[in-house]
Simulated scan of single mutants.
Amino acid sequence: MKRFILAALLGAGLAGAALADHQADDGKLRAAIAGSHRSAAHAARDTYRHPYETLSFFGIRPNMTVVELTPEGGWYTEILAPYLRENGKLIGAGEAFEPAKRYGMMFKKKLDANPAVYGKVVPGVFDPPSTFDFAAPNSVDMVLTFRNLHNWVEFGDEGMQNVFKAIHASLKPGGVLGVVDHRLPESMPQDAKASSGYIHESYVIRMAESAGFKLAGKSEINANPKDKADHKRGVWALPPTLANRDEDREKYLAIGESDRMTLKFVKP
Rank of each mutant, 00 (worst) to 15 (best):
M1H: 15
K2P: 06
F4A: 08
F4C: 13
L6Q: 09
A8T: 10
A8E: 12
L9Q: 15
A12V: 14
A15G: 05
G16W: 07
A18Y: 01
L19P: 01
L19N: 08
L19T: 06
A20F: 02
A20S: 09
D21G: 04
D21W: 08
H22V: 11
Q23C: 07
Q23L: 13
A24N: 13
D25T: 13
G27M: 13
L29E: 00
A31M: 10
I33Y: 00
S36A: 14
R38N: 04
R38M: 06
R38A: 05
R38I: 13
A40E: 15
A41Q: 12
A41I: 14
R45W: 01
P51L: 07
E53K: 07
E53H: 07
S56W: 08
R61G: 10
P62I: 05
P62Y: 02
N63K: 14
N63C: 05
T65M: 11
V66F: 09
V67H: 09
E72Q: 04
E72H: 10
E72N: 12
E78M: 13
I79S: 03
L80D: 15
A81I: 13
A81G: 09
E86C: 05
E86P: 06
G88D: 13
K89E: 12
L90G: 11
I91A: 07
I91E: 06
G92V: 03
E95G: 13
E98H: 15
R102C: 12
Y103N: 15
G104P: 05
G104L: 11
M105K: 12
K108R: 09
K110G: 05
D112T: 12
P115M: 02
Y118I: 06
G119E: 11
V125P: 00
F126M: 05
T131E: 11
T131G: 00
T131Y: 04
F132M: 04
A135G: 11
A135V: 09
A136V: 04
A136R: 00
A136S: 11
V140C: 15
D141N: 14
V143Y: 06
V143F: 02
L144W: 12
T145W: 03
W152V: 09
V153D: 01
G156P: 04
G156N: 10
E158P: 01
M160G: 03
N162G: 15
N162I: 13
V163F: 08
A166Q: 03
H168G: 09
S170M: 10
L171Q: 07
G175M: 10
L177Y: 01
D181K: 13
H182M: 07
R183V: 12
P185L: 06
S187A: 15
A192W: 02
K193P: 01
K193V: 10
A194H: 10
S195D: 07
S195L: 12
G197N: 07
I199E: 02
E201G: 06
S210P: 00
S210H: 00
S210I: 01
A211E: 11
A211P: 12
K214F: 05
K214V: 09
L215I: 01
A216Q: 09
A216M: 06
K218L: 15
S219E: 08
A223M: 07
A229F: 00
A237G: 00
A237E: 04
P239M: 01
A243R: 02
A243H: 00
R245K: 03
D246T: 01
E250F: 01
E250N: 11
K251L: 15
L253R: 07
A254Q: 11
G256I: 10
E257D: 10
R260P: 00
R260Y: 09
P268M: 14
P268T: 13
